[in-house]
Design a binder for these strands. Structure first.
Lengths: 216, 216
DNA sequence: ATATAAAAGTTGCACTTGCACCTTTTTTAT
DNA sequence: ATAAAAAAGGTGCAAGTGCAACTTTTATAT
């Protein structure tokens, strides 16, 4: 993940902080972040540590929405933070920078070179987050688990053009990512194995028909 | 939809065009846009007219991914354009402005006030697109049609705080938006009506239990 | 080293949903 | 004004999926 402060000197970062009137909060592992920082319209950056955006289901299930690591950005407009039943939990001791969105969008800022550099970095970061979200939408739009899996494989394949890739998370989390039931997903993975579409070795997934998969 | 050229004079827009080396293409109604503009990494704006991003399913179904109207932005990173089987069709005679993404991100641009204004507008537009996409993800993550509908109603309710709203599209398109089968959706709408959760009068949907819906 | 918890993997069953195929109503075009 | 097309609305049925309830394997903690 690119840093929002790329190409900025320490001095420029200090100036930026004061221009935007930022607040920096620290959180202990497992502490809730939102109650402290929540206001009308905010934009935040994880300076140190990591956190997770989780959604509390009406069944009491906690659904992982997004993993936030160092330099991740989140906020009212971006990411899944805009809902009542969302929660953000620090996964380690963390430091979070919070900016008022209106201050971020103040046209006066554009006078300052350091702001424009920062803003350009944010643009790039949000664009790539948006791209990832659109990938996920393409998967979630598929009605059947098999099609979701194949769409996911297709996206991974198109990134590397290799006939294998490594899951960046557990199978349980893959099921959450695809928004399907875990055991139903395994059932489908099993038939894809049986039909020699894929091989699974731990988190390594080999696409045996890579070229034909992206017909789907 | 905010204009990407807000707060810019005609002269500034001209300067911007030449700084970014933009191309402007015109398309007739029902013409395909992508073949003309497609390159490694682009960023585009609908200057006049309107278009639709559609995805060609392996069954031959055309799935509407996104409606683009005047001032809409789309491109390789944003929106659903980054896939092979995507297509963009002009719905009227249209004019499209195309920028090379690398030129857009050239740090030299930050010297020019008019660029920074333009860039700030883009930031805001993309942020709100991203917000919309995240709303949709929240819906698509729900496993059951009923929960998708209730999540959708909840989002609409939280926007206006009124116990009614008007569908911005047809029921057929609502089914596509929720990524569910149209008749299965109707079946679920019917039981929501029977259980006095909602009333439907054309495109007006009345939420009879608005406060309790967002428990879901 | 052992206990504990989490993830991986599997299966039966009931419920949900997609799909195909209708009818009726509304919209659009000529 | 009329025809044609699209949208709204509905239903039976088969296939797919969520869910619960397991076992086995792997990871984590003490």
């Amino acid at each position: 993940m690119k840093s929002p402060f790329e190409s900025l000197s320490k001095v420029q970062i200090e100036k930026l902080y004061s221009l935007l009137g930022v607040h920096i909060y620290t959180f202990l592992k497992n502490e809730e972040i939102l109650p402290t920082i929540k206001s009308e319209n905010i934009f935040a950056i994880i300076l140190e540590g990591s956190a997770q955006i989780v959604n509390n289901d009406y069944n009491g299930n906690e659904i992982l929405m997004e993993n936030l690591t160092k330099n991740s950005v989140f906020g009212t407009n971006i990411s899944a933070t805009n809902n009542e039943d969302c929660n953000i939990i620090a996964k380690e001791n963390s430091k979070v920078l919070v900016i008022d969105y209106n201050k971020l969008m103040n046209p006066e800022n554009l006078k300052y070179k350091y702001f424009n550099i920062f803003f350009s970095n944010l643009f790039d970061i949000i664009n790539s987050k948006y791209k990832e979200t659109n990938e996920r939408v393409k998967i979630l739009e598929k009605k059947q688990i098999r099609d979701k899996l194949l769409q996911y494989f297709d996206i991974e394949y198109s990134k590397s053009r290799l006939n294998y890739f490594y899951l960046p998370f557990s199978f349980k989390e893959l099921a959450d990512y695809l928004a399907v039931n875990r055991s139903a997903m395994f059932r489908e993975l099993k038939s894809l194995k049986d039909e020699h579409f894929i091989e699974i070795h731990g988190r390594k997934i080999i696409l045996l028909q890579a070229k034909s998969i992206n017909l789907i």
